[in-house]
């Protein structure tokens, strides 16, 4: 489960998306002035469709470490959604053993941001029945072949990514 948060509207002060890799936090500001931010996932299997307090605390700590001046902004609402975590943290764009059925999944929590590129690669695969040059490694059988794409070097456990 991934949670995202929206604060009350404030004057403009962030004009892009800021990502904090060391603590896992990202933030941007909407046109209405609300800060939109998020961070880590629960780390355990869940279909509960709701957030929880320990992760809210963790995300807010990440925000305070990066940007202490947002500390007194009040939270307006938050959202919790299911994430399709793959075992190595990388997505799968491939054929399946079923003829005519294709897979574009396992985006963990990077799906929204990667949509323009993943859509292009997926469309290429559907139209030509061969993978786009950029996406040749994102195969469904990469686990069985020992060709996992463990970008962070964390190991084959979804809760590590």
């Amino acid at each position: 489960m991934l949670q995202a948060f929206v604060s009350e509207g404030i004057k403009p002060f962030i004009d892009g998306v800021v990502t904090f890799g060391a603590g896992h936090f990202y933030i941007s500001q909407s046109d209405k002035g609300g800060l939109v931010f998020g961070g880590d996932i629960d780390g355990y299997n869940s279909y509960a469709q709701r957030g929880n307090l320990p992760v809210i605390e963790d995300v807010c700590e990440g925000g305070m470490a990066l940007m202490p001046r947002i500390g007194r902004v009040r939270l307006l609402r938050h959202w919790g959604g299911i994430m399709d975590m793959s075992m190595d943290g990388s997505p799968i764009i491939d054929h399946t053993p079923v003829q005519g059925l294709y897979l574009n999944a396992g985006w963990c929590y990077g799906g929204f941001k990667a949509t323009p590129a993943s859509g292009l690669c997926f469309a290429h695969l559907l139209a030509r029945d061969e993978p786009h040059p950029v996406a040749t490694a994102y195969r469904l059988d990469r686990f069985a072949r020992g060709a996992v794409i463990d970008e962070k070097g964390m190991g084959a456990q979804p809760n590590l990514h």
Partner: peptide, 10 residues
């Protein structure tokens, strides 16, 4: 105990 005391292993 609160879940933040625990680590998940699947």
């Amino acid at each position: 105990r609160g879940v933040e005391e625990f680590t998940y292993r699947g």
